[in-house]
Each structure stands twice: as structure tokens, then as C-alpha cells.
Computed example of a mutant assay.
Amino acid sequence: MGQDMLERLEELVRIESPSRDVGASRRVTALLDRWFTAIGLNPRRIESASGVHLVLDDPGDAIGDPILLIGHSDTVWPAGTLAGELPWRRDGGVLRGPGVLDMKSGLVIIREVMERLQGRPHRPVRVVITCDEESGSPTGTEVCTEAARGVAAAIGFESPHPDGALKVGRRGSTRLRLAVRGRAAHAALDPEAGVSAIDELVDQLLWVREVVAQASRTTPVLCNAGTITGGTRANVVPDLAEAEIGLRFIDQDSENDVLARLSSPTPRNPRAVVTTTIITRRPAWAAKDADRELMARIAAAGAALGQHIEGRPAAGAGDANLLGGPLGVPTVDGFGPMGGGAHAVSEHVLIPSIAERADLLEQILAR
């Protein structure tokens, strides 16, 4: 692997870029912008409430529709992680640091291959780098949707399966807020005047569990009440309470059914008001024939390089869900290098696999 790729990766990781930090997003996107501009490409910056997205087109030899490469510049790590629990370091053939696997090494691969292709016949390429993937792509979804227009296929640069296999099909992921408005009152002097938002929320969570259990008789649905908030003190009947719920779906039918049922909650206490709001949603992406055909072409390109490339479904969700799911674009994800520990202090990437993935991407895009 070339020293320049290692140096770029270190430079990128050292710009900490947590989701929802607009200033950090601008700094990391400015670096990416300079990288692509230096090789003659013309990135377009899209400002948003989450930060800055980056989109660029390389017309290549102008034969055929472009291949879309999907990445993201944000990480789950807060500012200060580099100076604390996860410093940048190299241990032999392993690199460690916040976002090194998810997914700054993938961005370095994209940049490397785009440079290799300049001045050579190659397929048209479109690159989109979102800034809020780790928070559900609240603004990145629209950017991806627009970038997908007219593309022949899409390749996502999330990390692969632990054995290096690509991801063909991913569970849908929805974050849902269940909110209850009750009525405050003194818990001892006038409890009947109050309506406990917390009691109602507990009842509603049991109802959510019932809905999920019924749906799971046909197709497994995962449900996790990740946060619960509400109330002020023990002697006050709480007037507000809410939970944030994470749902995972294998297919769009079960996803649509469950979300439709959860959209109309009925209060157990008629004096309470209960609402549900979808915070973020990545639709289920079940692998289709076009995805498998794209996977077969990638495997053939790998075989030409002496690489054995496989693909199978994955549990996690990402921006590729939108492309492979409702938009129907032939899609494969997990094109990032091998490693492990995404979102954990053990996050790391294996150096040899960075070069291997770059070689594979070049083989796919070059004529």
C-alpha cells in the first residue's frame, strides 16, 4: 500500500467529524474538496442543517450511465476522542483511530482510485459523500435520492462482513419517537386530577411489543426501546414522557405494516394524548436479481486480481438501503476495507485490505 494513502487516511482521521457538528463537517469536507480538486475534479458542496455533503461527477469516457460511489464523512465519535480513549496509531499492519474503519478508509480508497483513473478510459463515476449517515441521514437522504438519478449501479463503502464479504441486502432501520402528554398534579393531594404520562407510556410500550410480536410470526422484526424520558419529581404526576424506539425490518412489507399500525396509537387513558413520529427511516433492502448480478460482476473482477469476493445480507443499515431498496438501483455495500470494532474503542482497519479494495474498485471502473 502506498505511503500517500496512509498519509491521507491519517490526515482525514485527525480531523474529528462527529455527526451534527457543522463546523467539523465543514473542516473535513474542505479537505475532501481539496483532494478531489487536486486531480482535476469539481466537487459540489451542499450545505445542510447537519453539515456539508459533497457530490462530484467524473464523465470518464462518457460511455454508459455512471456508477455511484456512496460514502459518508461523519463518525459516531465525539470531539476529543483522538486525545483520549482512541488515539491514532499503527500496530504493524493495523491502523486504529476514530472513524478509521467507518468509514474514512473507504473515502481514501475512492480518492485513490479516482486519481488512478484520470487520463485513462473508464466508466462515468458519480461520488456522493454525506455528512449525517451516522445519525440516520436526515438531510443526506435527499442528497442520495438526487444523486441516484440516472445511475447504472451503486457501491457503498461501509465496512464489510468480518470475513471481508460484501453486503447484498440490509435490514431496514427506523427510529421512532413515542410521545405522551398527560396532566400534571400533586401526587398526594390531588392525584385524580392528574394523568400520568409515564403510566401511559408504559402501556404504549407494551402495545408496541404486541404489534412487533404479531408481525414477527411471519417475518422477524427487531425492536429496542433505546431511551425513555419523562417526569420531574416523585411528588408530581408527570405530564410528559417519551421513548425513542429502534426498529429493524427484513422486508418492506413487514416494515410498512408495522409502521402503519404504530402511526395510530390509541391512548389507554382517554385523557392522555399519544403521538408517534418517525425520526429517521432507512427502508429495508432485500437483495434482488439485479443486486446479485452486480455482485457477480464484482466477484469476476476480483477473480481477475486473484481476490475471492463473496456477498450476503447484513443486519445493519446505511445509505445504501435507500438505493437498493425503494429506488431499485442495483447495489452492493460493504466495499470498505477489512477490520473491526466499528463504533467501539477497538475500531481498526487492516492495512493490506485498503490496497486490495482500491485495486478491486479500479478493476471495476476501468475499461
Rank of each mutant, 00 (worst) to 15 (best):
I39W: 13
A296G: 09
L12W: 04
R175G: 01
I364Y: 05
A188Y: 09
L6V: 03
Q214Y: 00
V28T: 09
P121L: 04
A154I: 03
V345L: 15
T130M: 14
V274L: 15
S17Y: 01
Q214S: 10
A314V: 02
A225H: 06
E85V: 14
L69I: 11
S216T: 09
L9W: 04
P265H: 10
N256A: 15
A154S: 12
V202M: 07
S48P: 03
L95R: 08
R297F: 03
V180C: 06
G306Q: 07
L166S: 04
T130N: 15
L95N: 07
V127Q: 12
G318W: 10
A284H: 02
D33E: 14
G64M: 13
S135M: 15
L82K: 06
D253C: 00
S17V: 00
I309T: 08
G194P: 07
L305T: 07
V329K: 10
L68W: 06
R45V: 01
V202L: 05
T141M: 15
L69A: 08
A179G: 09
W35N: 01
V22T: 05
A272C: 07
L95V: 11
A303K: 11
H53E: 14
V274H: 13
L205F: 05
N269G: 06
T219Q: 03
R14Y: 09
L56K: 03
S254W: 13
S216A: 04
L361G: 03
P283W: 01
D74N: 00
A317G: 11
A301L: 01
D57H: 08
D21N: 12
I15N: 04
E242D: 14
G164K: 07
I70S: 01
E146R: 12
S346F: 02
L350T: 13
I364M: 14
E7S: 13
G164H: 03
I15Y: 08
T218M: 00
H53F: 12
E134T: 10
A179R: 10
P59I: 13
R209L: 02
V22I: 11
R292M: 11
V274S: 14
E115I: 08
A300E: 15
R27Y: 03
L86F: 11
N235L: 04
H348W: 09
I250R: 08
V76Y: 09
R20E: 11
T75E: 00
G140Q: 13
L31T: 04
R297C: 06
G169P: 00
G119N: 07
E244P: 03
V202G: 08
E192G: 14
L360T: 12
V221C: 02
P238C: 12
R367Y: 14
V94R: 15
A165I: 06
L240G: 10
H72E: 07
K288G: 13
V349Y: 01
A366G: 11
E200W: 01
N321Q: 13
R89M: 09
G99I: 01
I351S: 10
E210Y: 00
G84D: 14
D291M: 13
G80A: 14
L323N: 07
D163V: 06
R34M: 05
G311F: 11
E244V: 15
A342R: 08
G97L: 11
E10G: 04
V13Q: 00
D132W: 15
A148N: 07
A315S: 12
R20I: 00
E112C: 02
L117F: 07
R312Q: 08
